[in-house]
């Protein structure tokens, strides 16, 4: 049977629930919630908090760099996923639930707290384990979440100065090239020249 990402998440959580019967105390370990900065459109407060914790682990900031929390990367992604197919948000919500769950953490990562309750070093270790896990689909989930978080964080102009990226140049005053008909006409000054003839020169392009 092919193991799909949806099946992995479903059975991963299913397995956790099954194990949770004798280990209900562990599965009920509390999450440390953070207050969303705006109304959530995709995730629950718990999932938003997990995403915030993951984003801060991946992008902690420092020096001239802001942290992911400073930029509310979790909020940015909550908004993004609300504009995508509902299945995408559902998959990622399931992935965040799996990451947060203390029982899953105990089984998969030998940690006995929810992800949001872990200190920074433990979170760091957990994500490192996910990124190099022998379970392919665990690496896949890590890579997907990492990609979204990194894109939202480094796509934010507030991060650019610290890495020497000069920002986006403004070309709004540069005129568009002439319409094709005019362009070709400029290349073929001889009136008798046929439209299908190849041009033998072209106007000088703008300098960089």
């Amino acid at each position: 049977m092919q193991t799909t990402r949806r099946r992995f998440l479903k059975y991963g959580l299913g397995g956790v629930l099954l194990l949770a019967v004798p280990a209900v105390g562990l599965s009920l370990r509390r999450s440390v919630l953070v207050e969303p900065k705006s109304a959530l459109l995709t995730f629950s407060p718990r999932q938003y908090s997990t995403l915030t914790a993951m984003a801060d682990t991946l992008c902690p900031g420092g020096g001239k760099l802001p942290s992911a929390s400073d930029l509310d990367i979790a909020g940015t992604l909550d908004m993004l996923f609300s504009r995508m197919h509902p299945g995408v948000g559902a998959d990622l919500a399931a992935a965040l639930d799996l990451l947060e769950n203390a029982l899953a953490g105990a089984v998969l990562d030998q940690r006995f707290q929810t992800f949001t309750a872990c200190d920074a070093d433990v979170r760091d270790e957990v994500l490192r384990d996910w990124s190099t896990s022998a379970i392919t689909l665990r690496r896949a989930v890590y890579k997907a979440l990492r990609g979204f978080i990194m894109a939202a964080y480094w796509g934010n102009a507030a991060t650019w100065g610290a890495i020497g990226y000069p920002g986006i140049a403004d070309y709004s005053a540069v005129p568009s090239p002439p319409p094709f008909d005019e362009y070709i006409a400029a290349l073929t000054p001889e009136p008798e020249r046929g439209a299908d003839d190849e041009p033998d020169s072209e106007p000088q392009e703008a300098s960089p």
């Binding site: 991946l58 992008c59 760091d124 890579k143 990492r146 480094w154 991060t159 890495i163 990226y165």
Partner: peptide
């Protein structure tokens, strides 16, 4: 550009920030 560059690879945290710098 920073956004696309940041998504490749698997690094995170300080090591990734150093790569981006």
């Amino acid at each position: 550009q920073p956004m696309l560059a940041s998504t490749v690879g698997f690094l995170f945290g300080g090591a990734h920030s150093e790569f981006m710098r």
